[in-house]
Design a protein around this nucleic acid. Sequence first.
DNA 1: TTTATTTATGTAGTTAACTACGTAAATTTG
DNA 2: CAAATTTACGTAGTTAACTACATAAATAAA
Lengths: 162, 162
Amino acid sequence: MNVIDAAGVLAISTRLQRLSDRIRKDGQEIYKAMGLAFEPKWFPVIYVLHRRDTLSVVELANEIGYSHPSTITLLKELEKEKLIRSKKDKADERKRLLQLSAKGRHLVAQMEPVWDVIVAATTDLIRTQNNLMLAIEEVEEQFQRQSFFQRALPLIAVRNEA
Amino acid sequence: MNVIDAAGVLAISTRLQRLSDRIRKDGQEIYKAMGLAFEPKWFPVIYVLHRRDTLSVVELANEIGYSHPSTITLLKELEKEKLIRSKKDKADERKRLLQLSAKGRHLVAQMEPVWDVIVAATTDLIRTQNNLMLAIEEVEEQFQRQSFFQRALPLIAVRNEA
DNA sequence: TTTATTTATGTAGTTAACTACGTAAATTTG
DNA sequence: CAAATTTACGTAGTTAACTACATAAATAAA
């Protein structure tokens, strides 16, 4: 075992990132193998618009958990691919409302069976004693209760007094 | 719950990345709160050199799981901070051998109590029914047995025949 | 009803990883 | 032992996220 793996929870952020990367790259291969021109990074936007139909830029950014500038960059790319379209909100001229285009909806229809494959393969991959998906959900819940930093604070205080 | 969270394993890569980011940012706050000029991204290099003493660039890159160019960029930064030093390998002129500097070793000594705090706070954070650290290790093991893509392949084949 | 504040979007520039490619030293092969 | 291959390191350029700041529309306040 290498040193970072042996460092355990100290390097947990690095380990999470690495695992995320690995899964994303394999996901990309799966889309390719199934003959679809689709990049995993598009998934959050496309999936949310598929499920929620119409959203503004900031609403969408909040849903996918990205900053709004990052979201705008993704949206530009997706508009160039003609997978989404946008129109001004009549009621509020500041807002730009986003929807899947016909091409986007067609791609989603093609992707749904692929998503089934991805779900099946992922479920297989993470079928272990400690379930990764549940662990993520549980830790996110813990985070919401009290952040990592907040949990460390009292321990810091004790040290600084000593 | 938002749409991405509800997408479950389909969006697991996004969820992992988000959690990694959150933990890394809080880690940065902890170093700051304890008065240390240390960035979480330096951790893998510093920690590995602390544990392994002397390594070449590529050996180090493999240990921390980054590409060698990314590692070189980190090393430049750390040399500028005077936390590490490097010298040519007499036995193999291609190699550059890396070590912690005196300043680097001193910083490690200061950081060790902080690492204890981080370990304690993280352990507290991930003390849930499904343990995140164990889940990561288990999934990495599963990955080694057979990649995510390899697991998907037979499912793709069936679909393409149908 | 001006003026100030907030909200929504957008632009510019930064960051931290990557891949692709190039060069030089070491090793292997014909 | 000369030529080909591999290994180690480095540079250049890309990518996908971010923060900070700017502008315009909507809303609140004086």
